[in-house]
Design a protein around this nucleic acid. Sequence first.
DNA 1: GTTAGTGCAAATCGTTTGCACGGTT
DNA 2: AACCGTGCAAACGATTTGCACTAAC
Lengths: 150, 150
Amino acid sequence: MIEYSTLLENFVKLLKENKLKFTKQRELILKTLYDNDGHFSTDDIYAMLKEEHPELNIGIATVYRTLSLLEDAGLALSISFGKDGKIYELGLKKHHDHLICQSCREIIEFVDEVIEEKQKEIAKKHNFKMLDHTMKIVGLCEKCQKIDNI
Amino acid sequence: MIEYSTLLENFVKLLKENKLKFTKQRELILKTLYDNDGHFSTDDIYAMLKEEHPELNIGIATVYRTLSLLEDAGLALSISFGKDGKIYELGLKKHHDHLICQSCREIIEFVDEVIEEKQKEIAKKHNFKMLDHTMKIVGLCEKCQKIDNI
DNA sequence: GTTAGTGCAAATCGTTTGCACGGTT
DNA sequence: AACCGTGCAAACGATTTGCACTAAC
C-alpha cells in the first residue's frame, strides 16, 4: 500500500497543477479515506469529520464537492447500488470487484483475472471502447445467513 | 420468448394471490415493457403511456408504484447507474449483463457462461449466499467512438 | 359494500448551487 | 491583492406519501 505522505504529495501536486487550493478540509477527507481503509458514504465521512474534528465545522456540501474532486482526480472511486447507495473508497488500489452483504452491508473485495480477461474480450467483440466496468455480487455473508435462518 | 397472454395470466394470478387488484394501469405498464423490448426509465414509460393512452390520464406516482411492484414480483428488473440512471426491463429473460454506451446510452445485452461460473465460485469461496449479481461494462459504442474523435 | 388503487399535490431526501465571507496563494 | 473554497441556506430533481375519490372485487 502507498504511504500516506506519498499520497499527500501527489494530491498537493495535482491541486497545484490545476490551480486549486490545498485546504484543511480537502486534506482531512483524503486522510479519512486513507486511514479507515474501507467503504464510506458521503454522510459517513461527514459524520466522522464532525466527530473527530468538530473545530473544523465542516459542511456537508464540502464533503460532496471534495469526494467528487477526489474521484475526478482518480484518488477515490465510488460504487453505487440501489437508491441511496453510493459509497467511496480510496482509489489507488488495483482494480477489484465487490461482494456486498445485503443485510449487514459488509463488503468484501475480490479480483478474478479470468473475469477481467473475459470482459475485455466481450467489449472487443462488440466494438466497445471499455472505459469502466463493475461487478457486484449481492447476497448474504456467512454471519447473516445464520441470523436470517433463525 | 414468452407469449404475452401467458405473462398476463401469471400476472393476474400473482395479483390474486396477494389480494391485489388488476387495473388498466398495471396491465398497460406490463404491456409497454413487453411490447417495446428494451430498457426504459420510469419517465420513459410515463411518457409512452401519456402519448399512447391519453384517456387514462395516468399519474407518475402510479408508474413508480407499478414498476416497483413488477420488480418485487420478478416480472421486471432494474439496472441502476450513476445518479439518475435507473432503467427497467422485462424480467423474464435469461440472466444477462450489460454493455452501456456512456455517450448515446445504447445498451447491449450479453451472457458469458465463464463469468457466470466464476461468480458462483467466488461467492462460494467467501461463504456468501449469492442472491443477485450484476456486471456492467461502461464505455463508448462503435458509433460514439468515431463521433468523439472528430 | 368493502378494500385497494389512483391522481394529485405536498413532502421528503440526497445532492447541488448561489452567495457573502474567510483562507490560501 | 486576487482568487478559490467554504459554510450556510435555498434550490433542485427524483421519488414517496397522505388524502379524497374511484374502480375492482
